[in-house]
C-alpha cells in the first residue's frame, strides 16, 4: 500500500526496511499459498463424508421420526409398517447409562492414580500399556469376551451384559484421555495448593480436577458416544426383544445400534425406514447428552466444588 519501490531494484541500504509481503522471496510466498491451499482442501475432504452422512440420515430418517416411532413397541415382523423402536431407545439409554456409571468413575480414578500417584512406577506403566492395548481391542472381541465370561456363566442375555461390554470398551479411552488432561494441569497449581497446607487428595479434588474438568468431560463424552453406537457387543450379549424391558438384570433387551443393524439388513421398506429412523434417533440422543454434559462441566469448572 505504502511502498511502491520494487524490492529487487531498491538499493540495499536505502532507508527503511521493506516490511510488505512482496519483499518475501517467491519461494516462501508460493510455499505459504500451497500449504494454506492443502489445509483448506484437507478440511473439505474431511467435512464432505461427515456432511453426507448427516444429510442422508436427516433426509431419510427425518420423515420417519415421530412420537409414536420413539415410544411404540417394535413390530414382530420386519415386513410390517408402523410401530416404533421405543424398546431400543430405552435399551440404549439404560445400557449406555449403566456402562457410563461403571466406567466413568473407574476410569477417572484410574487416571488420577496414574498421573498423580503412580507416575513412572512399574505398576503405573503396566496399567498404561494395558489400557493402550485395550483401546485397540475390536468391539466384537469385547462382545465375545463378555459372552463367554458372563452370558455363558449365567446362561442369560441381559442388558447388564451389554453394559459390561460397553464399559470395557469405554474404560481404556477414559483412562488415557483423562490422564492426558491431568497432565496438562500446571504443576505450579499443585505446589500452590500444597504450600497452603492442603493434602494431596484435597489438592487433586479441589484444584487439579476442576482445572482439567472441561477436557476430561470431552474425553468421557467421546467414549460414551462411541460406546452408544457400538453394535457388535450388543448383538451378541443383549439378545432380542420387541417390548420395553426396564430391567437390566433379567430378560433380553435391545438397543438402537442393534435395531439399525437388523433392520438395515432387511429388504423390506418398513424395515429400511426403521433403520434410518433409529440412526437419526441415536445421533440426536448423543448430541443432546453432549450438550447437557458440557453445560454441567462448565458450571463445575467455574464454581469451586
Amino acid at each position: 500500500m505504502t511502498t511502491t519501490v520494487d524490492p529487487v531494484t531498491r538499493p540495499p541500504a536505502a532507508g527503511a526496511p521493506n516490511l510488505t509481503r512482496s519483499a518475501l522471496s517467491v519461494r516462501r510466498r508460493v510455499t505459504n499459498q500451497v500449504a494454506l491451499g492443502l489445509i483448506v482442501l484437507a478440511l473439505f475432504v474431511a467435512v464432505i463424508p461427515l456432511g453426507l452422512v448427516v444429510w442422508s440420515v436427516l433426509s431419510r430418517g427425518g420423515s420417519v421420526i415421530s412420537w409414536e416411532f420413539l415410544t411404540e413397541d417394535i413390530p414382530n415382523s420386519f415386513r410390517r409398517s408402523g410401530g416404533g423402536v421405543g424398546p431400543a431407545v430405552i435399551g440404549t439409554l439404560i445400557i449406555t447409562g449403566m456402562a457410563a456409571l461403571m466406567a466413568v468413575p473407574l476410569g477417572v480414578l484410574g487416571a488420577i492414580y496414574l498421573n498423580e500417584y503412580g507416575k513412572q512406577r512399574p505398576l503405573a506403566r503396566l496399567i498404561r500399556t494395558m489400557a493402550d492395548i485395550m483401546t485397540g481391542v475390536p468391539s466384537v472381541v469385547m462382545g465375545l469376551f463378555i459372552y463367554s465370561a458372563w452370558v455363558l456363566l449365567f446362561d442369560a442375555r441381559t442388558g447388564f451384559a451389554g453394559a459390561l461390554a460397553l464399559a470395557c470398551l469405554m474404560l481404556p479411552v477414559i483412562i488415557r484421555s483423562t490422564e492426558e488432561m491431568l497432565r496438562l494441569v500446571p504443576d505450579e497449581l499443585r505446589q500452590a495448593s500444597l504450600a497452603l497446607g492442603a493434602r494431596k487428595w484435597r489438592t487433586t479434588l479441589t484444584v487439579v480436577l476442576p482445572a482439567a474438568i472441561s477436557g476430561i468431560t470431552s474425553g468421557v463424552l467421546l467414549a460414551i458416544a462411541r460406546a452408544a453406537g457400538e453394535t457388535a457387543p450388543i448383538v451378541f450379549v443383549v439378545g432380542v426383544t420387541t417390548a420395553p424391558n426396564w430391567n437390566l438384570f433379567s430378560g433380553e433387551n435391545t438397543a438402537l445400534p442393534a435395531q439399525i443393524f437388523r433392520n438395515a439388513s432387511q429388504v423390506f421398506e418398513p424395515a429400511q425406514e426403521r433403520a434410518w429412523g433409529s440412526a437419526l434417533t441415536l445421533i440426536v440422543i448423543v448430541l443432546v447428552f453432549t450438550i447437557i454434559a458440557r453445560i454441567i462441566a462448565n458450571r463445575f469448572a467455574i464454581k469451586e466444588r
Binding site: 497449581l189 505446589q191 500452590a192 476442576p210 482445572a211 469451586e304
Partner: peptide, 11 residues
Amino acid sequence: VFQKPNPFPKS
C-alpha cells in the same frame, strides 16, 4: 509465594 504468580483458576 512463588516466583511466577500462580492463582488457582477460580474466582
